[in-house]
Simulated assay, not measured.
Amino acid sequence: MAPDPWLPLLAAARQLAQDIAEKLQERSRCQRSGESSAKVNVAIRSSLQSLGEKIEQLREQLLRAVSTRQITQLEGDRRQNLVDELLTRHRQLEASYRNEGPEADVSRSSLMAGGAKRGVTNPWLLEEPEETRGLGFDELRQQQRRIIEEQDAGLDALSSIISRQKQMGQEIGNELDEQNEIIDDLTSLVENTDERLRSQTRHVRTVEKKSASCGMLVVIVLLLIAIAVVALWPTG
């Protein structure tokens, strides 16, 4: 896995902010002792400009990483908080740099609180979230990788559920198609049976009419024979 360039850039920006805070203290000492602070002022001004550029680079890289999904949204929010904190420090350092009065010592002291203690190399780490406090670059990458793996596992589970639901939908659709075919066959069978019944009914009626006609004809023939017999019978 390629190293994340954002984390080293963040560390460099933090270290630069620490250096600026120390230079502000050095300028304060020069002013109190009557020494010239012009050289320190130039260094502070240059460092402040460089810090602003690094913060802008952090914001651009973070936006690119989130938009291309190189990091999770949770990690993106965490990094955005770190950038916001660094931006606030940058503004405080600029305010202290512009403040040339005696009250500047109070601002500088608040900026250096905790950072000037022996053994603390990066005061900004004291304000990091609890879950990342004291973690190195490799540990942060491992944490990010675990978050991504957990999200991937969740996505896989969701994909499996959606796939099963799709399969069930297809099976239900196939069953409905089969039921529709059965209904169509039954409808066709009923229509054929009805047509045959109507045909048989018409045939029976025709036979009945023919039978009635034949019976009447027989009666007429018998009547004519009877009349002929009576006519030919000798009278005595």
Rank of each mutant, 00 (worst) to 15 (best):
M1T: 10
A2E: 14
P5W: 05
W6L: 01
W6R: 02
L10C: 08
A13P: 05
R14L: 05
Q18F: 06
Q18T: 07
D19K: 06
D19V: 06
I20G: 03
I20C: 01
E22H: 03
K23A: 04
E26K: 12
S36I: 02
E53L: 15
Q57V: 05
L62G: 01
R69L: 08
R69N: 11
T72V: 03
Q73T: 13
E75G: 03
N81G: 15
L82H: 05
D84P: 01
D84N: 03
L86D: 04
T88N: 05
T88S: 01
R89G: 04
E94W: 06
E94T: 09
A95Y: 07
S96A: 04
S96Q: 01
N99H: 00
P102L: 15
A104S: 07
V106E: 05
V106C: 04
G114C: 09
G114A: 03
A116N: 06
V120F: 12
T121A: 11
N122L: 02
W124K: 06
L125Q: 00
L125C: 09
L125M: 10
L126M: 09
G134M: 03
E139M: 08
Q142F: 07
Q143C: 06
Q143S: 08
R145M: 11
E149K: 03
L155Y: 07
D156R: 10
D156T: 15
A157H: 13
A157Y: 10
S160W: 11
Q170L: 08
Q170A: 09
E171H: 11
I172V: 15
G173I: 01
E175M: 07
E178R: 04
I182H: 09
D185C: 10
T187V: 13
T187W: 13
N192C: 09
S199E: 14
S199L: 09
H203D: 11
V204Y: 15
R205C: 12
V207F: 12
K209M: 14
K209F: 10
S213C: 13
C214E: 14
C214A: 15
M216Q: 15
L217W: 10
L217Y: 09
I220P: 02
L222Q: 01
L224H: 03
A226C: 04
A228S: 03
V229M: 10
V230L: 08
L232I: 04
W233N: 10
T235H: 11
